[in-house]
Nucleic acid binder design. Structure first.
Lengths: 206, 206
DNA sequence: GTTTGTGAAACGATTCACAGCT
DNA sequence: AGCTGTGAATCGTTTCACAAAC
């Protein structure tokens, strides 16, 4: 598959959300213009985004909502569920474990690890926090598809290397650190303080 | 000020972090190449990013670490602290209130609001959760610079309109909803499930 | 008549490459 | 000699505009 821009993939995720909404409202077909309006973009952008993957619409009519939703799920790899390990049982970790949006999109958090003896053994949303020492054993017995990293910055790289060695191929990183991984592993870093800083910049420069 | 790309602003935030690190290590000067390596970009990119705002380096030498850090803080509007209201005392809200990265970057969460009577009046990290009914009164008495929105999607737009009416000019939105705001208000939406979906896409298409 | 799908054009961001300063 | 600052070139993304399909 030819390289598709990250911005395109993100928009496809959005379109899928809107399609689910439309489907819930019983809407049967949708035009690129309608999707565009809902997503704050243009109809040409919507059509171009979809055109990377095929032609799913009917001229003069638009797209069949359930069909396009199905196609997008396929494209995004959301036709299955994913097993996710949470590394770090701090504040953010605790919130994410209970965040329903993950489950709704097909991501099941199946284990939590921490270094803190005070946390190990406690119950989090039905899961027992495991010692990070058990990471290798646990993940070998019950492999995961992805990891969510919510450790302090200085621990992030070391844990990442263990995860990579265990075959984890995708990491969502909340630690404010740059992770070095081999090419076959995909990392997405979310830096919450940085998001506020872009707001601060916008407030300042006007 | 001429329009600067969002990607540029985000990199500036990163550079500032690295400069703080370098400063902590007693490093006095840094080249664009060194900053680039730390940030996973190129030296030309670093110099171009900075050039939008002035010329801060010395040819043949590089940049003075404390001076450049100071300049970046100024550019990003981080020479002051910001008062932030948290709207929604759910899981994510609770995590963010305690997230130290916000404070470290100059963002102080000074109030929390929720609709749930069971939560109103409880203490969160030293703050009392207030009823959303008190939003107008509270924010008029103690204005804030920004709001972090962590409500359910269907409540987001209504709260946003109240915040805008109260003069809030920047909103960090975690609700999976598109917010409509006037031009003078800046919104940054973070959609956590969507980040996992980009990973799912990357895993699927290889 | 309406709306898609898509080359072509326009725009924007990144990289190159080098003159100019220290 | 080393490194910045920047115009020019390149690369990638978005927008335009229209022929083709229904």
């Amino acid at each position: 598959m030819r390289k598709v821009a990250d911005s395109t993939v993100r928009r496809l995720s959005l379109y899928l959300r809107f399609l689910d909404e439309f489907e819930g409202q019983g809407v049967e077909t949708v035009s690129s213009a309608a999707l565009a309006q809902r997503g704050g973009t243009t109809s040409a952008q919507v059509r171009k985004d979809l055109s990377f993957f095929g032609s799913f619409g009917k001229r003069g009519l638009g797209y069949f909502v359930p069909e396009l939703a199905q196609r997008l799920r396929q494209i995004l790899g959301l036709g299955r569920r994913y097993r996710v390990a949470m590394i770090g049982a701090g504040k953010i970790g605790s919130a994410l474990v209970q965040y329903r949006g993950f489950q709704q999109s097909g991501f099941d958090i199946v284990s939590i690890f921490d270094v803190d003896p005070a946390k190990i053994g406690t119950q989090w949303n039905g899961l027992t926090v495991r010692s990070i020492d058990e990471l290798d054993r646990d993940l070998r017995a019950q492999p995961v598809d992805m990891a969510v990293l919510v450790t302090p910055a200085d621990a992030a790289q070391a844990v990442t290397e263990r995860l990579v060695a265990l075959g984890v191929k995708a990491i969502l990183n909340f630690a404010p650190a740059q992770l070095n991984v081999p090419d076959e592993v995909v990392v997405k870093t979310v830096n919450l303080a940085l998001e506020l800083e872009t707001l601060s910049y916008a407030l300042t420069n006007r």
